[in-house]
Structures are given as structure tokens and as C-alpha cells.
Nucleic acid binder design. Structure first.
Lengths: 128, 128
DNA sequence: CAGTATCCCGTCAGATACTG
DNA sequence: CAGTATCTGACGGGATACTG
């Protein structure tokens, strides 16, 4: 999935924007990151995830797990026991992604307050 | 906007996931990054953006600009001339964000092929 | 030029109930 | 335990037409 028709030349900056979108298309979903984090410390079971991740529905857990597995970010192991036991674990690729997010979380922490203030200011300005 | 009720203790990992979501809530939109990139090299006008960003609609351009301005990532200047001239430029905070995305784009480039292959494999496996 | 105003549709996500 | 099935509403985003 490309960002623009390949025959259209675009600037290096927009190419970069396109690359960022690739990432967002994988882990931009509401629950993807939480799941990856939980599965980055070792195998976790379905119900464990359901308990650890506040507010997720069974449906969205399943869907997001499937997508992450499809993209090669999660590995799924089925133990043919009774009752069934299924474990999910982050792949090396996903662990690298996790590392790459550090810069981003640092940014968010540094500017959390400034963003909140900007919002308040904007909303005050644009009322009435 | 918090990720979970504040009275619920959660692990450090989930706190990090929450922080990542903060960023995604700002720039997770389909066009946010493209706009920020365009406005990071100096002031750009509305119509310039419309031309440079392949496929964006006038409506989404306006909406995304407003949101970015509200979050303090973009600064908007209106020149009271005829015809009107409005310029947008990325704030220092947005430039820092742009820097923080480098790690992420590197990750995407390194694993682009692996992800595509994983998808193909998964889809082949789950057909029929 | 730099927007608004409408209408419309597809996808994301929640709620609930059922099952191998 | 680990899902699937179905229904539903909210929201993001596209197309088009109009305006100070």
C-alpha cells in the first residue's frame, strides 16, 4: 500500500511522511500498542491480555491480535490441550519497534503540559 | 484524555503504551504528518498545502490544520490583505516531534519487506 | 484565496450472545 | 479457555457546492 501514485515524483519530506504512515497503518489502532507491550516480556495467554488491558473487548482483542500476527509482529502458539491454551509473543521485529518508540514517548512526556495548555488557550479563543 | 481510570494502577509498560497513544491521538490522522512535514521548512499557504499533498480534500485539510493548531503544533498567521493570505508554520514543538520520528521511519524501512512477506504467508495459510 | 456547509459512505469499535 | 457471530452507533474522511 503506497501513499501516492508511484509515477508522481514527491519531495523527500513527503516520502518520509509516507513511511511514517506505513507504521501507523500497523500499530495505529486503538489497542495495538498495549497488546505489543504486554507480549514483549514473554508469552501471554488470551485471557491474560483481556485482564491486563483495561477496557478492551473480546472482539477487538481478537481482531487486533490477528492483524498483528498477520504483519509478523506477533507469534501465536496453540497448545492442543483441554482446555485450549494459546500464547502470543512479540517477534524480534516488534521488539525493535518498541525500542524505536522511546524517542516518541520522550517527546510526549516533554510536551504533555504544553499541548494541554495550547488546547485550553485555543478553546478559550474560539468560544463565542 | 487519559488511557485508563486514574485510580487503577497499571504497569509501567502500559503507562508507556498510554503515552504512545497520546502521540497517536495528535498525529494519527491520515493527513497530519504530511501537513507537519510541509510546514516544517517554513510558512506555507493553504493552497500550497492543497497542491503539495496528493489526494487531500479541502475539507480534511481545513480540519487537520485546525486540530494541529489547537494542539500547538502549527502556528497560523492571517495577513489582512485582499485577496486573503494565511500562512501556517510548524512550531518548535512540532519540529522536535519530526526529529523523534526518525527512529520510527528507520524501523519501517528496515522491515518493510519482512512485513510484506509475513502478510503474504499469513494470507496463503488462511485461505480455505 | 481560504475557507464553510451538506451529504454520504465505509470502517472502527462497543455490546451482547453463542460455541468447539 | 479462546474464541466467533451479529447488531449497532460513532467517527473519519470523500465529493460537491457555496461564500466573505
Amino acid at each position: 500500500m503506497t501513499c501516492a501514485p508511484q509515477n508522481v515524483p514527491f519531495t523527500e519530506g513527503q516520502a518520509r511522511a509516507c513511511t511514517v504512515r506505513e507504521v501507523l497503518d500497523r500499530v495505529g489502532g486503538k489497542w495495538s500498542i498495549s497488546i505489543l507491550v504486554s507480549a514483549s516480556h514473554g508469552p501471554v495467554r488470551f485471557t491474560e491480555l483481556e485482564r491486563h488491558i483495561e477496557g478492551i473487548s473480546r472482539r477487538m482483542l481478537t481482531l487486533t491480535l490477528r492483524n498483528l500476527e498477520r504483519d509478523g509482529l506477533l507469534h501465536r502458539t496453540v497448545h492442543p490441550t483441554v482446555p485450549p491454551k494459546v500464547e502470543y509473543v512479540a517477534t524480534p521485529m516488534a521488539l525493535e519497534l518498541y525500542e524505536s518508540l522511546v524517542a516518541l514517548t520522550n517527546w510526549a512526556e516533554r510536551h504533555r503540559r504544553a499541548i494541554a495548555e495550547a488546547r485550553t488557550r485555543y478553546d478559550a479563543q474560539h468560544t463565542g
